[in-house]
Design a binder for these strands. Structure first.
Lengths: 245, 245
DNA sequence: TGCCTGACCTAACATGGATCAGTTCAGGAC
DNA sequence: GTCCTGAACTGATCCATGTTAGGTCAGGCA
């Protein structure tokens, strides 16, 4: 839960607001790699977050193939306010063994009504994820396979960095080539070829589940990566009111 | 603004709550086809919605190519709470001539704090769009071009239906083949060929900007379309509290 | 020791969709 | 009427990626 507290703090909340949130947190639950954190169509009175490990949002299609629509890393919410409005519509699957925290959803809504800053912060997390989803759409729609992989790696590096989970241009990257395939819409065979190419271009080093970005600028330029969309939208002061729309 | 009021009403709000919202609405602004509704990095103290016409969220890349990450139709919010947390990170472009309404963002946040049902409804709209974005990711990642187009057409039909903008299996479809290309990550040339194929399969009829779904079941089955993700998540009663996460 | 499994890796071949280079047609401006 | 433009449409060619069918290697286990 350390990363969750850090993350809440990074969203512009005061210490007392963060404490009010942390007071709601329930004991964590361990989920083994491959296990389900949330099942589609299920209901839960809790909002969950990733405490440690990696997870993915999965849309299953016929034929056993799946599309991962986002990765979740420590500090990320799994289902912020989803259940207040109906059952969740996709599976959330642990990709490594993971620890999952939770807080009562109704109590969280109450806290938001009482503390405008908390309401803003929750909107910030939600809009932040939407920006990531849009970036994924652009990645899938416009980029070729090598740039597509590069873009995802750049994104993961930034997201882990802001939780203090990435070191000097390197991080623990537990995703298999099949996971990357499921996320990027590229077959695992071709993922392999393109990872080889990125290695040959001296852009990355990947071994024993540790990824090192050997040439961040080169990788970003290949990927067309613009990190602005990941910027945490902290609750900034109300913008000045203008008189016309 | 008629469609906006309808849409608010469809989200489980009472008449008085809808009225409270409508009291905030400012006069609409007309935008010509191709014009900008919101520019990336701009700031606005208003939350905008589409009153009439179609718009698209656009990510521009180098080389003049663009990715449309969602279409916006009458009743859709453009930038719900985006500006309370920082400048918006993408362009919103009118794809037809369009009329855009707005309401003061701070006043809307105030209304949400005072009326929990309104806060829930706004979360519902936001989560609803996130579900659409995830469905787009799956569409781009997993489906071949003909199924991809079919899926988008099914989605648009459902979305317009729920605003009363689609008739008996047909609707006004103002998107050019280039617009479809920009949204689906398929060249306009190939969009054309695949539209021919859908016509040849007697699944659709498209002429003079009117699209008719000749065989809804056939189209859905080709697309693997499951409409559940579009279901408006109305503010349902609080789920019963359980004691374990 | 040998067997099994999952992840990574590779080669040969097939193909969906991109690219390039056009044509046709309707509507609007003049 | 002619010109111009945007959109729809088409055919030929090419290549990025999918498909199929393997191989290698390390770890766990009997």
């Amino acid at each position: 839960m350390k990363f969750f507290a850090q993350r809440m703090g990074s969203s512009g909340l005061s210490n007392s607001e963060v404490s009010a949130l942390m007071d709601l947190v329930q004991p964590s639950r361990m989920v083994r790699a491959g296990g389900l954190i949330r099942r589609r169509n299920s209901h839960s009175p809790f909002t969950h977050f990733i405490s440690s490990g990696w997870a993915g949002r999965c849309d299953d299609l016929e034929l056993g193939s799946r599309q991962i629509t986002n990765f979740l890393v420590p500090g990320d919410f799994c289902d912020l306010h989803e259940d207040a409005l109906g059952p969740i519509d996709h599976d959330i699957v642990a990709l490594t063994s993971a620890s999952v925290g939770s807080l009562p959803a109704e109590a969280l809504l109450g806290l938001e009504a009482a503390h405008p800053a908390i309401a803003r912060a929750m909107w910030g997390f939600s809009l932040n994820e939407s920006a990531i989803l849009r970036a994924w759409i652009t990645n899938l729609g416009r980029r070729e396979s090598d740039a597509r992989i590069a873009h995802l790696l750049c994104e993961l590096f930034e997201r882990l960095s802001r939780s203090g989970l990435a070191g000097d241009h390197s991080f623990q990257m537990p995703l298999t080539q099949q996971d990357l395939s499921d996320a990027l819409g590229i077959t695992a065979v071709h993922i392999n070829r393109m990872l080889q190419r990125l290695r040959a271009m001296k852009l990355i080093h990947l071994e024993n589940r540790v990824l090192t970005l050997l040439d961040v600028e080169g990788l970003r330029s290949l990927a067309g990566f613009e990190p602005a969309y990941l910027k945490m939208r902290a609750g900034c002061p109300a913008p000045p009111l203008r008189t016309s729309a």
